[in-house]
Design a binder for these strands. Structure first.
Lengths: 113, 113
DNA sequence: CCAATATACAACCGATTGGTTGTACGTTGT
DNA sequence: ACAACGTACAACCAATCGGTTGTATATTGG
């Protein structure tokens, strides 16, 4: 695994490790939302929400599109899938362990016969 | 989604948002490793690695088992799967958006006929 | 034209993070 | 018995995080 991939993984998991950001992500996956419309949903300053959006954007989990004075944020499902595939990879590592255990059991059965 | 679930999600994503911890998780998913054996693999102090293991343990991504003076850590694939299912849920949110777009297209086609 | 709106960004703050060293304590091998 | 080993945990530190307020800039509606 390359250094770039690890940086990307750091950014993705970090972005997801905050409930406000996960909630923003759910909203923008549902459809486009301007930053100020998003900000209105939370009991924190506009600037705070804007920072959360920026973290999600840097991780690639959402993209922004200008429309007049508004900035419309939209969730990127491909980035979500890339995280899912990292976890699938981890599960594969675990499957290898089970396969090795099964192999040992099989060898043991052979011996006993 | 309950507050407890959100706390758990915070802990899980935070635990995964560090490359050393992801690497430790890969190793312990492959099989049991003592904390000191894990510590030997990284260019940082034993205490630092021990803290990383503790973060993974608190998130439920690994469990420890005492064996004499050693503490054997083992990865928990169920916790990995629970993260994967959170992402699947996000992807479902996105699918709803697509479904609504398709619906609008269908309505538009009806009008034009 | 200009007041209101939407955004961006810097500076600041307390809490948390990821690392260190040092100390303490149970377990083990000789 | 005791030195070496494996672990736990506290105290500390610099850097980052999640939040704030304040300021600047571009766009819009009346």
């Amino acid at each position: 695994m390359s250094e770039r991939d690890e940086d990307q993984a750091d950014a993705l998991f970090h972005a997801l490790a905050d409930r406000t950001r996960r909630d923003i992500l759910r909203r923008v996956l549902r459809g486009e939302h301007s930053v100020s419309v998003l900000a209105a949903k939370y009991e924190m300053s506009f600037a705070a929400v804007q920072k959360h959006v920026a973290v999600l954007e840097r991780a690639g989990l959402l993209t922004k599109r200008r429309s007049g004075r508004e900035q419309l944020a939209s969730g990127d499902v491909e980035a979500v899938r890339s995280v899912a595939s990292m976890l699938a990879e981890l599960e594969q590592v675990w499957r290898g362990r089970i396969a090795r255990i099964d192999e040992l059991i099989a060898l043991d059965n052979d011996k006993q016969q």
